[in-house]
């Protein structure tokens, strides 16, 4: 069956240019071969069509739930929330240095809400970040009662117990309302000796960080000479702050996933950090 093999090879497009030319010359001279080729082409194309139809039938049986009738109207909702993951990134509190004894403690919880949004265009998956500030009274601090919809607040991170120290308390030795927080009398600030690695090869992470195996990894175009890691030593806790180009960033050592860095906005905290920084420099 020499012809059979030649035809197969020809149809599957596996012939070299030379072989093809020779075969086509042969075809022109041999009508029987030509009609055999036509038959084979039809059969092979028929097999392919049958297989395509089989696959389509298979797919038709996959339950998808028709959303098309409502599709246009619900586009915006669909684009809205598919999965919502919210993580409390930064949680710190502070006391007013010269406040009267009864002054309530303010707890500021900054919640970053990341919504995974599925858009109809496949190219893009975007995130919308909606920072939200919630001010709750001290009594409610340990159990955040205000929960935005679709937002999971990790209790561990929302309680005042976390390794957050108020730098201002070093100056005010007066007892504070928040009994749970033990502020060290002799807090010191030092340049941290934590191993830092700069990774600027990840294009998706322009200004992010993560902790990995006790090392801090900074993502982005960091100028190695311009950043400083400040470690504030307190009772058992030592929050880390990143100082970079006149901004301060809280570094959560529990953060093992890549996290965007956002500058601390609290003017008082920034002021205190500034003082610490100038002190130790």
């Amino acid at each position: 069956m020499e012809n059979f093999e030649l035809i197969e090879k020809y149809i599957s497009g596996k012939m070299t240019d030379a072989e093809k030319l020779a075969f086509e010359t042969q075809l022109n001279a041999d009508p029987t071969l030509k009609s055999e080729l036509t038959l084979q082409e039809t059969i092979v194309s028929g097999i392919k069509k049958a297989r395509a139809a089989e696959l389509k039938t298979m797919l038709s049986q996959v339950p998808v739930g028709s959303m098309l009738s409502a599709g246009v109207a619900t586009t915006k909702i669909v684009a809205g929330v598919i999965a919502t993951t919210a993580v409390v990134t930064v949680s710190y509190f502070y006391f007013k240095p010269a406040s009267p004894v009864a002054s309530p403690t303010e707890v500021k919880t900054k919640i970053l809400e990341n919504k995974k949004t599925e858009r109809p265009q496949p190219e893009v998956t975007i995130t919308t970040t909606e920072p939200e500030k919630i001010v709750v009274p001290a009594a409610a601090a340990s159990t955040p009662s205000v929960k935005p919809k679709n937002t999971k607040v990790s209790p561990a991170k929302a309680t005042p117990k976390i390794n957050v120290l108020d730098p201002t308390d070093e100056l005010t030795t007066s007892p504070t309302a928040a009994g749970k927080t033990e502020i060290a009398d002799h807090m010191t600030v030092a340049v941290s000796h934590i191993a830092v690695e700069i990774n600027n090869s990840e294009k998706t992470y322009s200004f992010h960080y993560q902790f990995q195996n006790g090392r801090l990894i900074l993502y982005g175009e960091f100028d190695a000479t311009l950043y400083e890691i400040l470690e504030i030593h307190g009772n058992g806790s030592h929050p880390l702050f990143l100082y970079y180009k006149n901004n301060y960033y809280l570094l959560d050592e529990k953060q093992t996933t890549v996290t965007p860095l956002s500058a601390i906005q609290n003017a008082q905290l920034v002021q205190k950090l500034k003082e610490y920084r100038s002190k130790q420099n």
Binding site: A52, L55, K56, L59, S60, V62, P63, V64, S66, M67, L68, S69, G71, V72, T75, V78, E118, P120, P122
Partner: peptide, 30 residues
């Protein structure tokens, strides 16, 4: 097929196609 069903069929439906045509095109594409 399941994962992108909505995304792909929408393309056809919003471009003057019927739901049936949308499914057909998507299946052919796959």
């Amino acid at each position: 097929y399941k994962k992108y069903y909505r995304m792909m069929t929408k393309l056809v439906v919003t471009n003057s196609g019927t739901e049936e045509e949308a499914r057909d095109v998507y299946q052919d594409a796959l």
